[in-house]
Amino acid sequence: MAKVFVFCEFQNGEPKKGALELLTAAKKSGNDVVALCLGEGAKEVASKLGGFGASKVLVNDSADLTTYNSEKYADVIATAITAENADIVLASGSMLAKDVFPRVGAALESGVASDCTELTINGADVVARKPLYAGKCSAQVNFQNSKHKIVLMRANQLPVDEADTGATASVEDINFEAKDLNTIVKEVVKGASEKLDLTEANIIVSGGRGMRDPEGYKILEPLAETLGATLGASRAIVDAEWVPHSYQVGQTGKTVAPTLYIACGISGAIQHLAGMTGSKVIVAINKDPEAPIFKKANYGIVGDVFEVIPKLNEEFQKVLN
């Protein structure tokens, strides 16, 4: 039986949805599934992963790993993959995973398929598909000459099965050598938002020039609050410094793939579309009926964002509360 290794990130004591998507896919492949959890709280999370298909969970819950450090993480992850001799390695493409896995791949003489949207596991073989050239085409990604096949998936691409409450996984500690580090994290300045990062968000409410000014953009906040959504932005209003660059969706910003993307006052320049056409359902609200965003949208409303958005918020509140 082939072995699939799943890197599981967690937040507030719960595994992230992207990790559960990959555990589900790994379990369905019929292979042996080993998971890895790092940082304080890892043991508690590990106890929940058996239900999603892991037969074994490796943990290191040292406080030393609670804050991400690329050298430490690359070392412990490579140690774990080597110890398990995993055929396939899966991780959800969070900013952390995208940072560390290429380092792991280089160290282990293994290829890394990044930003993938489809995944097919067949025994020890894996084939993925990823968008290229701003989503204008996609290609099948194949591995060769790789000790391990490392796949980073975009979040929200795969289903999550209900947990099997009867299944449990063994939990084992994994240690690694603390080497002389050339990377020291001096300070972590928390962002204003406790919401999921744009790259992992399930719902995104995004604004552009049509929001008129920084004050106007703020009417998106209650709507995002109602939906539990993460706020996004077009390049135009990031360049105008209405919102920080971390909000930017599109080329030179973030590539997102939520279940629902609500574009408010965004015309839909190709650079913006490059970052969000992977969304499952797109809603566009714009006063210009000719705006290119409508060509990519599933649902469109031609109207004044300042009239539509408060009403829309009321409607969502009615059905969600």
Binding site: M95, V185, V189
Partner: peptide, 12 residues
């Protein structure tokens, strides 16, 4: 920049 607009200061 890391997740959710959080910033890390790192010494290399």
């Amino acid at each position: 920049e890391v997740e959710g607009g959080t910033k890390e200061v790192i010494e290399l």
